[in-house]
Design a protein around this nucleic acid. Sequence first.
DNA 1: GCAAAAGTGTTTATATTACACCCATGA
DNA 2: TCATGGGTGTAATATAAACACTTTTGC
Lengths: 225, 225
Amino acid sequence: MPSELVKVTVDTLAFAVQQGSLEVLLVKRKNEPFKSLWGLPGGFLSDSDENLDAAAVRELYEETNVTNVYLEQLYTFGDRGRDPRGRVITVAYLALMRQEGLELRASSEASGLAWWPVNEPPPLAFDHDRIITYAYQRLKYKIEYSPAAFALLPEKFTLRDLQTVYEAILGRSVDNRNFRKKFLSSGVLQELNETSQEGSYRPARLYCFSEQDFEKLPDRPVFVF
Amino acid sequence: MPSELVKVTVDTLAFAVQQGSLEVLLVKRKNEPFKSLWGLPGGFLSDSDENLDAAAVRELYEETNVTNVYLEQLYTFGDRGRDPRGRVITVAYLALMRQEGLELRASSEASGLAWWPVNEPPPLAFDHDRIITYAYQRLKYKIEYSPAAFALLPEKFTLRDLQTVYEAILGRSVDNRNFRKKFLSSGVLQELNETSQEGSYRPARLYCFSEQDFEKLPDRPVFVF
DNA sequence: GCAAAAGTGTTTATATTACACCCATGA
DNA sequence: TCATGGGTGTAATATAAACACTTTTGC
């Protein structure tokens, strides 16, 4: 059967926002092919993986030590010639997280592990530049109709933190009065009786995301700015 | 390498609207597993396929004789146990077409080939019921922001034809004054100097879709009713 | 002239956009 | 008291939603 020759990998696009910049987590390759170029964390699907999502979780953990983050399938890339080792198709996953609190650890297969600005990535292996471009586009759309942005924030956050995430992903600034108005009236934020003191100026109110109230929204774009 | 055991299929969800009803094209299986149940047209990825899209085109043609239709990748399903023959992941494709003009022909692997109402499918093989549900949901969203509906219509169509496609997919009726107003003002329709005479009543104006004008629209939902 | 589907406008409510200043805090 | 980021409101415009009758055709 011809498909015996096909191999399947699962690669993850791990995004985080750091100081107003959207970054993606990449691995420096220690081995051929594309030795010493950077690539997406990922690896071959194993028969022991319960499903594709589990494979993405496992590979992300093995390659970066990152665990317990938001993950969802994005798209499957399978052009002939995308991998010089033969016919390899890859199922790409989107992962959203915060850098704070992670204990990154590269696997022995890697000679490096680092966050890169999504707009200025290093030279990349395979078709990973294309995959990053695709994922970034999808993420831009996704924050308009889903609560994906909250996966990039701690449980408690200020409205400024939330706006910074949107601005980092959209790549432009948004009007802060309209932004606050829309999010506050959407009903998905729970106001906490706590504030965040960051410097010698007015402390900011903290909020948390209410999954339950999000479910009540119509399933069409509501976080458009 | 564990992935040697993984096989890859490409399955296609071929949708068409017939007499106001959204239908999906299914194949009756002649062989095990799931002999005599219905399933999606598809088959194993071949090393000779240039890419996954090409595999979908080829498999759809081989299994149904359908060719030259709109196709796009939807999602990849890979739960362990979804195929009793072993670890088989399937890349699902969405295909949109008109039934009129097709010359359906089942392959020798099939004992039948038929259109089924998407809401009342026959007993299905594998996890194909889940895949149909997923694809139908995606199609519902898709017609709000993309010109996908036009792929279900002939080149020249009436506004009533277009509304029928939307109503079939949304599963509800929409206000015809608002529907016409929105589509006519969107700029994506070119009015033709032709009419369609269907019976002993007033003929309807024919229109065609302008891809070029569609590109000028903002890339967010515009065909929401 | 009748049956059948095509075609048309207005009003109201809601959502979006644009825009600039005061507030609270720690140093 | 000052420097810094937090926090607020209104008016204009655009979009969405609700709603019913007239027109054109073949028979």
